[in-house]
Design a protein around this nucleic acid. Structure first.
Length: 250
DNA sequence: AACGGCCACAACCGCCTGCCG
DNA sequence: CCGGCAGGCGGTTGTGGCCGT
């Protein structure tokens, strides 16, 4: 289900995101916002490309993000909007709060396959396939029930959206990540959500952003959380040209 | 118990668009 | 107007897990 970690020709990491990377990215964006996706990984201490960070944030780390467990209503909305808009997943996603375009796309492809099978399932072979799909759907719902029988739906969402969800944690690679980490990240997401709803998340970063393209980069500094502050006219007074960021972070 | 097929979905890739100098 | 860059989007791929045989 996940890609094995690897590096591209520039030494940037590809593949599965580790909990540590998630934590770094989440912490950084929560604090400073996404002032520049291509620069952000350097400042957040991540060996990833900006696009990868953006995707990870938008699809999984963003507070309030929902994954899986599509309700009948959501299915109907998707069906209706797809009929109107076609494969405009981002447009469809705007009508489904908390759902990412990637998730909707994946869901559509899954559902579309099922429908396609259904349409042609007069033959025994396709009905067999369909039964297989149904059994898989059942399998998923059982997994979801097992995952967190005592949790609220909100808590379920939080855990599902992370790599170390109960299902994922069974994987060898992530087996060492503990339940403590799940709780830690849950707390982190709740704090992030609070920050967003309080308004500071959306206002502060873009103050920086509006200046970013107009000014020379200024020296970043480490804040009290150990994060590298983004370049900003408000932070530091040394020029970045005399500053080796790589030495600073790694 | 072992194996193969299928499924779900995280993540990558490449193209398009808008902005800026 | 043009080229470069960053962000956004849709298509596609890779892979672990589950189920049936």
């Amino acid at each position: 289900m996940v890609r094995t970690p690897s590096c591209d020709e520039n030494g940037r990491k590809k593949g599965t995101w580790t909990p540590e990377e998630d934590r770094k990215l989440g912490a950084y964006i929560t604090k400073y916002g996404c002032w520049n996706w291509s620069q952000l990984p350097k400042y957040a201490g991540l060996a990833r490309c900006g696009k990868s960070c953006r995707l990870r944030w938008m699809n999984y780390l963003r507070p309030n993000v929902k994954r899986g467990n599509y309700s009948k209503e959501e299915d109907e909305i998707i069906l209706k909007l797809h009929a109107q808009l076609g494969n405009k997943w981002s447009a469809i996603a705007t009508h489904l709060p908390g759902r990412s375009d990637n998730d909707i796309k994946n869901h559509w492809h899954t559902a579309h396959k099922k429908r396609a099978n259904y349409a042609t399932n007069s033959s025994d072979e396709s009905s067999k396939k369909c039964n297989n799909n149904e059994s898989n759907t059942r399998r998923k719902s059982v997994e979801n029930q097992n995952a967190s029988p005592n949790m609220s739906s909100h808590e379920n969402i939080v855990l599902e959206s992370s790599q170390w969800s109960p299902k994922e944690s069974s994987r060898e690679e992530l087996s060492s990540y503990t339940t403590d980490y799940q709780l830690e990240y849950k707390v982190f997401q709740e704090e992030a959500l609070e920050e967003i709803t309080s308004g500071s998340f959306w206002t502060e970063p873009f103050v920086v952003d509006s200046f970013n393209s107009k000014i020379d980069f200024l020296a970043p500094s480490i804040d009290d959380c150990g994060l590298v502050c983004p370049p900003s006219p408000f932070i530091g007074h040394e020029l970045l040209s005399s500053f080796d960021l790589d030495d600073y972070i790694w």
